[in-house]
Design a protein around this nucleic acid. Structure first.
Length: 297
DNA sequence: AATGTCCCCAACCGCGCTCCG
DNA sequence: ACGGAGCGCGGTTGGGGACAT
């Protein structure tokens, strides 16, 4: 159960993808769609398993991917969403158009976590580290946790404090039973609302997270240099090939173009599309927002 | 210049879920 | 109802570039 039969097959290539493999996969999917992933490698002439093809497409080849460094605004949104959703990277990614769950996960683990710790905030709980050190390790109830953290909160409350039991930050949210839930809708619906970004922003102004965000990401994000993805060199080298090149053309954004892209991103965040960026990814996942939740947009 | 260490990120792995016969 | 196939997710790994010594 769970493991692809193709993974047992011998002589399937693994590791980094070559430009030729990328081109084969890109051409095949743009012309035929992926359909059943397990049949993609055979149809596209690749010595890879379907799972590997799927991952390569989703994380790297999709034309709608946004390349380059994360903006301050994006990092801020990731932190805010992580406080609510925990490590549900795919759900977080659905609110950052052009970003993949893998990309966000890497950004979180390599950069954002450190920044949070430097600011004295525990990246798992989104609470001050000093508070984490002093708190008992036993299984606190939601009520106990609320009482414990209440002095830390000013006028507005941390969503994590309100909705998450200890240990559930990366698990299920305790939203349904909590009378303080600020939105009328089921989370599956309210997370899909167009105003998610502004709603979140308004929720975090006086928390420690907010302080951190205002003093760190927002001040540095706009001037972050665009880091070129590793694939750029070979991507541009193969840019003469017709179809392949257009999907990868954006990889070589200049700083100026990158900033323009960031502006577009900000625009997008303020007026998000009604369609989930990767709606098919959402279909089967137990934690995903149901398709119907997007219908009201 | 050579070597060691750190860190990023692409890719893999394993699990849980849904679908379908 | 059951089991296999396929899909998608989060966690983890390791290659390789960047940086320090």
């Amino acid at each position: 159960m769970g493991k692809h039969s193709c993974c047992y097959k011998q002589k399937l290539k693994r590791g980094l993808w070559s430009p030729e493999e990328d081109e084969k996969l890109f051409r095949y999917i743009t012309e035929h769609g992926h359909g059943c992933w397990s049949s993609v490698p055979k149809q596209a002439g690749l010595q890879r398993c379907g799972k590997s093809c799927r991952l390569r497409w989703i994380n790297y080849l999709r034309p709608d991917l946004k390349r380059g460094a994360f903006t301050g605004q994006e990092e801020k949104l990731i932190v805010e969403l992580h406080e609510i959703l925990g490590n549900r990277w795919s759900q977080i990614a659905s609110h950052l158009p052009g970003r993949t769950d893998n990309e966000i996960k890497n950004q979180w683990n390599s950069s954002i976590k450190k920044k949070l710790r430097q600011k004295g905030i525990d990246p798992n709980t989104h609470k001050p580290l000093s508070e984490i050190d002093n708190r008992p390790t036993a299984n606190n109830s939601s009520m106990e946790l609320e009482l414990e953290l209440e002095p830390l909160l000013n006028n507005e409350e941390s969503l994590t404090t309100i909705f998450c039991r200890p240990g559930e930050v990366t698990g299920r949210l305790n939203y349904e039973s909590n009378p303080h839930f600020p939105f009328d809708l089921h989370p599956g619906s309210w997370l899909s609302q167009n105003s998610i970004s502004s709603q979140l922003n308004s929720q975090f102004h006086s928390t420690s997270i907010s302080t951190f965000l205002q003093t760190d990401f927002s001040s540095t994000g706009s001037v972050l240099p665009l880091q070129s993805p590793r694939g750029i060199q070979y991507a541009s080298a193969s840019s003469s090939s017709s179809q392949f090149s257009w999907g990868l053309a954006d990889w070589g954004l200049s700083d100026q173009e990158g900033k323009l892209g960031d502006n577009k991103q900000l625009e997008h965040l303020s007026t998000p599309s009604c369609t989930p960026p990767d709606s098919q990814n959402q279909a089967a996942h137990p934690h995903s927002i149901p398709d119907t939740a997007w219908a009201d947009c």
